[in-house]
Design a protein around this nucleic acid. Sequence first.
DNA 1: TATAGAATTTATAATGATTCTAAAGTAAGA
DNA 2: TCTTACTTTAGAATCATTATAAATTCTATA
Lengths: 158, 158
Amino acid sequence: MEQRIERIKKQLHSQSYKLTPQREATVRVLLEHEEDHLSAEDVYMLVKEKSPEIGLATVYRTLELLTELKVVDKINFGDGVSRYDLRKEGATHFHHHLVCIDCGSVDEIQEDLLGEVEAVVEQRWNFIVKDHRLTFHGICHRCSGKEKPEKENPENNG
Amino acid sequence: MEQRIERIKKQLHSQSYKLTPQREATVRVLLEHEEDHLSAEDVYMLVKEKSPEIGLATVYRTLELLTELKVVDKINFGDGVSRYDLRKEGATHFHHHLVCIDCGSVDEIQEDLLGEVEAVVEQRWNFIVKDHRLTFHGICHRCSGKEKPEKENPENNG
DNA sequence: TATAGAATTTATAATGATTCTAAAGTAAGA
DNA sequence: TCTTACTTTAGAATCATTATAAATTCTATA
């Protein structure tokens, strides 16, 4: 945890931004909730627990900054709010999501399954792929009664 | 055009909705701008040209209804507005998009490139895929100076 | 240490997309 | 024609997000 904060700090410094206490508090919340998909409001409320004096606008500004630095990814599942998702360290691509239309859960796929598809897109559409967003909508293993997949969140094979 | 409207009318009727003049005007705008990715406001302004008395709320309600019936897909490219995209007739999946981070253009891919990926997801994650959203961000052929792809919008091979 | 200047935060107001509400309009059946 | 349910309109309300102005903090330098 401390190491990751240290590295994010360096990343900020490299663009002449500072890791202020408010920004650090925000980053800590994101790290502590790595599995979740928090909205700005969610983050705000969690940050407030430990740093009650922080303002909502600051949280928004920090999240925007972190998005710019590609520390987090901003995503939208169509429910009217943006959500912020920490990138796995070293990951160069945006991970994928499984949204359950039954219970609303959101699981992550860290593996990059799009290698071949991107090659096709680059060749056939002459489009230089820089990033992607892929979300599947369907029924999760919990709702379908199927067994839990062996590795639901594999550590670092993206 | 008339045939498609007729079919959409039937689809509405099958759920005991009516194709009111306002709804029809909205559908016509969508059909006339099939290649575009219109926001609710865009649709509103286009509908007003021919039916000036229509209200914005009606357009919103109609788009919501059409989304429910899967006549259109509601998408979000991260620019703060929802956009509405007519489904190709017979298409069972949501088509893909190529968003240029340079000029902002949005091109479509009708082909379903995700067959294998979905099979992997179903098997490895025990997730029953019902639909998907796939958007690539990158540089389009116009901005990169590459030649235009042979078939930019293939007719109906999705 | 004092001080100027830049960056940052706070609190609040403003914006803009979307949804809600109440009243009026419309269509279909008895 | 009367009744009932559905639909639309206009405008108000809501909610997420962004902008603003004043206050605060940090940094560098004298």
